[in-house]
Design a protein around this nucleic acid. Sequence first.
RNA 1: GGAGGGAUGGCCGAGCGGUCUAAGGCGGCUGUCUUGAAAACAGCUGUGGCAGCAAUGUCACCGGGGGUUCGAAUCCCUCUCCCUCCGCCA
Length: 426
Amino acid sequence: MLDIKLIRENPDFVKQQMAALQDAHAPVDAALALDEERRTLLTQVEELKARRNSESKRIGEMMRQGQRAEADQLKQEMTDVGDAIKTLDDRLKVVDEELFDAMSRIPNLPLPWVPVGKDDSENLVARTWGELPHFDFAPKPHWEIGEALNILDFERGVKLSGSRFYLLKGAGARLQRALIAWMLDVHTNDHGYSEIYPPYVVRAQTLFGTGNLPKFADNLYRDIEDDLWLIPTAEVPVTNLYRDEILAAGSLPICHVAYTPCFRREKMSAGKDVRGIKRGHQFDKVEMVKFVEPEQGEAELVTLVDNAEDIARRLQLPYRVVQMCTGDLAFSAAAKYDIELWAPGCNEWLEVSSCSLFTDFQARRANIRYRPEEGAKPRYVYTLNGSGLALPRVMIAVLESYQQADGTVRVPDVLRPYMGGLEVIR
RNA sequence: GGAGGGAUGGCCGAGCGGUCUAAGGCGGCUGUCUUGAAAACAGCUGUGGCAGCAAUGUCACCGGGGGUUCGAAUCCCUCUCCCUCCGCCA
């Protein structure tokens, strides 16, 4: 959510930014009109309430002094005032809701240095790392490698749960578990994050805080009976940890890392990426979330991206960092970098992390504030998050990059201690 | 799942429709006294909206929402959460 004051004071600037974001539907003018009406109504209704407050006090005094007639007279007048207040309040409530709705549909503003572009074709590759591997045989896609090694089972996944579900077995399951434990250790030991184990099921209100509801309800799984929702990412519970709180002076930055499964219905992408484990309804992810002072936001984004890259570097997996242009920025992000691993079997770059700076956009919606100093007025924090990393696609990159001519897969050096010393999956 | 009891400011806690502008205490800040500190004494003490250059004014907030009333922390309805006991359970 943007600050309505910013829109009120710089409407043309905001509209120009919406154009850069390729968002033709952002209801900026509607928000301006509603804001105007809201303030007019507020002034009127508050005047009436001030009058009712003081006159009600007078009625109390009259009653005490036995001036029944005068009191009744004044009561009669106040009934009318009360009716007028009710009418204005009802209208104000509608306007408030409409304004909130309009504000909820206006995306975050990009930072000034974000490249302007119309869509993902104009994203910039900021840097690449590592050499693309050369094979003296035709590298296979991970689904062939996995099924041959009996570590991936698609058919039984479908039997149990339907399309887009699969099982990891034996060394495959252990490889994923090793990756999770190792990534968490790297982030907590070397990158300064503290680990969180959050609920995987949350209330609707929590999903509002991160903006997943109401707009993206179709992509969420839900238990109707208790109105609880399965999280689509750890970002949801972890960002909401401090919802409606004022963090004490000196407590920032707060850096959390959490491993969770993620659940997504993916109805909107039916038919896309059906092969392999690239896009399932259930997948695992290690997620980093930061709460920082506004002045530190951009520097923290740089380290966040580097923390995610570090995982790929330690796995010796070639990657590239892609900077989103304005036209491809996510709704809440002010700046965003994706990290993509090379998958030699699928012959494509796989997005394994998306690192975003949300400025105060999420904090405003989730009402997360902090005190710069003890006793100082609260300010909104800046939030950031990024995957560190998403498991299935790292699994793909590992299986495909470390495959050997005989169909076996070497275990990356850093994971061997987590695999009981196993060097080759055969 | 059953039965009961609760939710008030940073914390504890009073509050039986009108000086609630929320008592009192703790904590915190400022000042007096003191060489300094402690003690004592005095004053101050939350969040947000709107108007205003500002001083300031005004409204809202006693778990959330709705209602009754001229007037609600207080009465009514409803939801959420917490606690105690019973049942069930890894």
